[in-house]
Simulated assay, not measured.
Amino acid sequence: MTIRVSHLHGEHIAVAAANGTEILRYVYRPDPDPFESRKPYAHPLRTLAGHTVTGYRPSDHRWHKGLQMTASHLSGQNFWGGNSYVHGEGYRRLPERVGSMRHDGFSAFAVSDVRLAVTEELTWVENGGEEWAREERGLTVHSVDEETGSWALDWSIRLTNTRSAPLVFGSPTTAGREMAGYTGLQWRGPRDFTGGTVFAPGTDAEKLMGSQGPWLAFTTEHDDIDAHSTVVFAHAPENEEAVHESHWFVRSEPFPTVAFSWAFFDEFALAPGESFGYRYRVVIADGAWDTERVAEHLAGLPW
């Protein structure tokens, strides 16, 4: 199935399927409020039938924006956005801790009839203006398939510490809050994903928070329309050898969210001049897929 790509320079990249449905909009001109951690994000993401599967600035967490890279606890700074967790005090509004991710440009931009592959250069900037890290981000839209009613987005990160001190990555859990591993690539679902079904291979649904595994899926029945959607989150094979092991941060209630948490239970440090990388895949599908269908589909999408 062919795609059409448009680029509003300085604003966003949009990808539309052959039927005219805009399935992805990647916004790299950040929203204006620095408290929300100004950085690029992908929203909306839609199925081929046009059903939206991301939320944007929900009333409970205005800094949740579609699919975005985050680091909630990074050497005392918050690159997630919003309130910061302080042990013994809870979540506090500490705008002086909120950093940003600056879009510096695209070093590669390749488009074909069936694929978009973009490499973006970014700089992570702490609240006081000091540049802490350089990121090379890869975004690839592919496998747009009318027969299966699905498409895939690959998202990669390679982050290099550019400061003179180690970068220490953590989460609210490493700071003292149990089972709150907010950090890493994070998806926020729209409100009609609340109460949806979450499943992963070999793990009971009630035990998914903080678990590990190659993939996790989230399905829902939409409000207003007679339709279901499925979003699948998958690790690339090399993530098993990454700088730090990952765990799933996942909630269906009170709001729908999934994060590839790279520092759920334990902190890890990145020395000056050192780099790390992760690669992820998100599959957006029409219909309510089950474990067998997800596994079969992922097996048919080579990395």
Rank of each mutant, 00 (worst) to 15 (best):
R115S: 13
H73C: 05
R46N: 11
S6H: 05
R29S: 11
S107T: 15
L94C: 11
E120A: 12
A299G: 12
N83D: 14
G88A: 06
A271H: 00
E126T: 04
A71I: 00
R158A: 08
T194L: 05
D224H: 03
D31Y: 09
H297R: 14
L185R: 01
H9W: 04
H51S: 03
M209F: 10
K39W: 14
D192M: 01
F260M: 01
I23F: 14
R4A: 15
R279D: 09
D223T: 03
F268C: 08
A180I: 00
E11R: 07
L48C: 05
G82R: 05
E120M: 14
L116V: 06
S100V: 00
W187T: 04
V141Y: 08
A152D: 10
R163K: 09
V15M: 13
F218D: 07
G196A: 03
R92D: 10
I13G: 12
P30V: 10
H297N: 03
Y41K: 02
E267Q: 08
S252G: 03
T123N: 02
Y280G: 02
E136Q: 12
N239W: 00
T47S: 15
G66A: 02
H9R: 07
R46D: 03
S252F: 01
T54G: 09
I23S: 14
H12A: 13
I3R: 02
A17C: 13
V231P: 02
G76Q: 11
S107M: 06
I23Q: 13
H64F: 11
Y85S: 01
E120T: 09
A299L: 06
G210S: 07
L159G: 00
G149A: 08
A205Q: 02
F260S: 05
S37R: 02
Q77C: 14
M179C: 00
R93E: 15
R92M: 07
R115L: 11
H297S: 08
R115T: 09
V5L: 10
E135H: 04
E36K: 06
Y91W: 15
G105S: 04
H103M: 04
G170S: 12
T54Q: 08
P214K: 11
E131W: 05
R134T: 06
R38M: 10
V232R: 01
P32N: 03
G81W: 15
E130Y: 06
A17K: 03
T173E: 14
G277H: 13
H64E: 00
H244D: 00
E96L: 07
T174L: 15
W132E: 03
T140E: 15
